[in-house]
Nucleic acid binder design. Structure first.
Lengths: 145, 145
DNA sequence: TACACTATTTATAAAGATTATAAAATAAGA
DNA sequence: TCTTATTTTATAATCTTTATAAATAGTGTA
């Protein structure tokens, strides 16, 4: 199914008139297969072997292109660099404050919150984001030692 | 009441053994009176007149101190720099995607989400963050022109 | 009030992430 | 295959934030 997702993503690019380069192919593939939520630098390092001459700028440029097309979501947490997530179904993230691990968490969209916010503030709401913070089981058991 | 908040904040600092310097006083005062959610640079620029020799590092250092003491919350959105918010009661933020305006939005904490997340992932949840995005009335009316 | 001690500020530089630029390379359609 | 506009590369610049060390200034004590 990762296979199908990649194909669909490439089709999306084609439909939008975005050229499919080997670098773009590899970045998408990495994002889809990666169960983590990599930073631009993670991706750069991971593809160094396959593309020894690739520039960091290429990674950033393409992540921006993917974001604009809607294939990828950019996550900005407290730490230094953004993380990138291939867009599949709607889900939230649970983040470990000790080790930084990010786990997907499926939950119905909080439509009610958006409605109330719209009513109270007069904004036309487009979307929201939410993250949940805590300690993952691994770190919790280490703490207890 | 901004007056009272400032006094309480200063008391908090005193209790924690953090020295009250003119710069700290001014930064706190600015944060409390500011209805916006300023960046470190906003604060720096705003206090330039009063403290011509103040260093940017001072602003950053003190914002970190305030955050550690719990007086201030750091907000990291998509844009380049963090924003800082004087902590009062629990509330969320509604953010205009056109002009960047941030409006406070009071809503009961989403305890249920935290519970479910804890149950599903095994994390020990400490807190969550949520932001709501949309278009503010001003920008919406400009769009319609 | 003056002193001493330590925290804080300043000035500066360094680090890290991201973006801009221009020349070279290349994907995709004719 | 050929052409052209897009993309990549290499590099430098920008911006935010942190580190460092010397100078300064709060705060408790005599």
């Amino acid at each position: 199914m990762a296979h199908i997702e990649l194909k669909e993503a490439l089709d999306t690019l084609k439909d939008t008139g975005v050229r499919i380069t080997p670098q773009r192919h590899a970045i998408l593939e990495y994002l889809i297969n990666s169960m983590s939520h990599p930073t631009a630098d993670d991706i750069y390092k991971a593809l160094e072997g396959k593309f020894p001459n690739m520039s960091v700028a290429t990674v950033y440029n393409n992540l921006r292109v993917f974001r604009e097309v809607g294939l990828v979501k950019e996550l900005t947490y407290g730490d230094a660099s953004s993380r990138f997530d291939f867009v599949t179904t709607h889900h939230y993230h649970v983040i470990c404050e000790q080790c930084g691990k990010i786990v997907d968490f499926h939950y119905p969209g909080l439509d009610e919150v958006e409605h109330l916010a719209s009513h109270v503030t007069g904004f036309k709401i487009s979307h929201h984001r939410m993250e949940i913070y805590g300690t993952c089981p691994d770190c919790a058991s280490k703490e207890a030692h």
